[in-house]
């Protein structure tokens, strides 16, 4: 028997990356330690470090078409900054050049790294904040919102909450209701993104129940429940909310299906050397 790995804080605190140069060490540490990590970045800060216009077509690759269809510099620059953040985040895990990677989009728009299924990424942005999560365990979805975003009193409950969630919110003190709604909203977005569904999965068809107490670190764990409030007993999934510096809240939905103690995510070790050697020997030079 090997000793059980120490319980790690979930979710780990997102580390700040000031630009393409990083720092990336904390992300790599979290990814190697727990199979999941998050980085946050400032759009304003990254915008000053974007490559010049004449280099963008080559750097964006198949994303160029999307980019060139966007109207106006602000939208284009945000798109470019988010694609750069995803590429650099993934490149840390894969040990590759960020621009040797290719982003692909699922039929519902979910972003993936084409050809690399050892990792999964998820991106969320709001105002100046860019947040990117990455895992080697299975699939991940993240979402973030400004902590002061008003949802309560906008009749949002009826559109996004299950009956048990509405009842719990109604019982909460007035001052806590908006925070609870924000947690539920971000959790639902995160889970739906992890499933590759975006907003297709109706938010009144599933719910979340916050665990008591503050949980690990600054994060707070949540549990998935059905529309009628029955808990879903699927232990491959973990859900939590956490604060992000700059006055934001975030939620993470993470599924572990890899079931490996130390997942190796590097591109350089993905191809099996024995197979390559055997094929090489069998083929004429």
């Amino acid at each position: 028997m090997t000793a059980a790995a120490p319980e790690r804080v979930f979710p780990p605190e997102p580390s700040r990356v000031g630009g393409p140069a990083g720092p990336w060490a904390n992300l790599l540490r979290d990814l190697e330690g727990s199979g999941f990590g998050m980085v946050h970045a400032s759009l304003g800060e990254w915008r000053t470090q974007l490559p010049p216009e004449d280099e963008r077509k080559e750097l964006l690759g198949r994303d160029w078409e999307r980019y060139s269809k966007l109207a106006g510099a602000p939208l284009r620059e945000r798109f470019l900054a988010t694609r750069m953040l995803i590429r650099h985040t993934a490149a840390v895990a894969l040990g590759t050049e960020p621009y040797a990677l290719e982003l692909r989009y699922g039929l519902n728009g979910r972003v993936h790294l084409r050809g690399y299924d050892q990792i999964d990424v998820s991106l969320s942005h709001t105002a100046d904040l860019l947040l990117c999560g990455i895992t080697s365990l299975g699939v991940v979805g993240i979402d973030t919102e400004p902590a002061d975003r008003r949802l309560s009193g906008q009749d949002v409950e009826g559109l996004m909450c299950t009956e048990p969630e509405r009842k719990r919110i109604a019982r909460a003190p007035e001052a806590e209701r908006n925070g609870q709604l924000l947690s539920l909203w971000t959790l639902k977005e995160a889970y739906s993104k992890a499933l590759g569904q975006g907003l297709r999965f109706p938010f009144t068809e599933f719910g979340f129940r916050m665990e008591d107490g503050e949980g690990d670190g600054a994060g707070r764990a949540a549990r998935l429940e059905r529309a009628d409030g029955t808990l879903v007993e699927d232990h491959t999934w973990r859900f939590a909310t956490c604060p992000v510096p700059g006055g934001h809240v975030a939620a993470v939905a993470l599924q572990d299906t890899r079931r490996s103690g130390r997942p190796d995510t590097r591109a350089s070790t993905a191809l099996n050397r024995q197979i390559l050697a055997a094929i090489r020997q069998s083929r004429p030079a």
């Binding site: 990677l101 692909r104 050809g115 591109a267």
Partner: peptide, 8 residues
């Protein structure tokens, strides 16, 4: 490493 996206 461009072999990975290309193979897909």
């Amino acid at each position: 490493t461009r072999s990975f996206p290309l193979s897909e």
